[in-house]
Design a protein around this nucleic acid. Structure first.
Lengths: 140, 140
DNA sequence: AATCTTCTTTAGAATTATTCTAAACTGTTG
DNA sequence: CAACAGTTTAGAATAATTCTAAAGAAGATT
């Protein structure tokens, strides 16, 4: 356990260094919460609450900064499904989402199960960055 | 022309009545701006500015109310692509969008050109409301 | 280890988009 | 046209996010 944790921390340090981000206490804490166990979908507020609850003081501004820095570094992905909230996804591999409208929750759809065909050519002078699919669902 | 405009107004009145919305001056003005000429993607702020510029006083609150009422009535569709802005689309038929990240513009992709396959079953007790595809593009 | 420089963090103010509120107003119906 | 229910509105309130400027911590340099 301790070994695993140590390994995880060391790994996180590497990832931060690779992104030219100093491995500060705050960033390590947030990275731990984000990446320690499986993939997650979080909002800034929720992550901030989590850190606070865990007894680690991190300001909300830092949470926002960090989430954006991680996104720029490619270790987080921002998901736009709802105009009022921004979600961050720790899974940056190709995949898509169900969005449960009743509960504002995201559910992953593996990238290899889903396919989009018939895309027209993008306008001249532009290139495709990403294709996002959101399947909106609600209580039957 | 005058004939066409009259026809259009009458038609808009019908649509509003059908949605149990009184055809007030404000709603007719906004409907005119939205539906008079081809399909459009607008934000509340932009529509408000347009109405104001056209010399017709409509409060911003009314623009928001109206856009939401029209959406509920199914004559507008809300598009979520960017966490900071909400777009309303006058085309409510099945279709998708390119989103130009550099300029925050939406471009239609006809619904019959694009297809999504391999969708997994939605979670039990839920049904699919809509499948949204956003193709994010930027300057090459 | 002391120093310097640069990057980070932070509290709180500021901004942006949107919703709410309560009072004034208007369309519709009898 | 009176009466009622539905609408509009200015401005306050809220929510999510970004900005600011000052204090704090990392990493390099001596």
């Amino acid at each position: 356990m301790a070994e695993k944790a140590a390994h995880a921390s060391a790994d996180l340090c590497q990832r931060l260094r690779a992104a030219a981000l100093r491995p500060t206490r705050q960033r390590l804490v947030l990275a731990e919460l984000l990446f320690a166990r499986g993939h997650r979908h979080v909002t800034a507020e929720a992550l901030h609450a989590e850190a606070t609850r865990a007894g680690i003081g991190v300001s909300l501004a830092t949470v926002y900064n960090t989430l954006h820095q991680f996104t720029a570094a490619g270790i987080l992905r921002q998901v736009a499904v709802d105009a009022t909230r921004t979600y961050f996804d720790t899974n940056v591999d190709a995949h898509q989402h169900f969005y449960v409208e009743d509960s504002s929750m995201l559910i992953d759809i593996p990238g290899d199960s889903i396919a989009v065909s018939g895309l027209p050519q993008p306008p001249k002078g532009t290139r495709i960055d990403r294709v996002d699919v959101v399947v909106r669902i609600s209580k039957a």
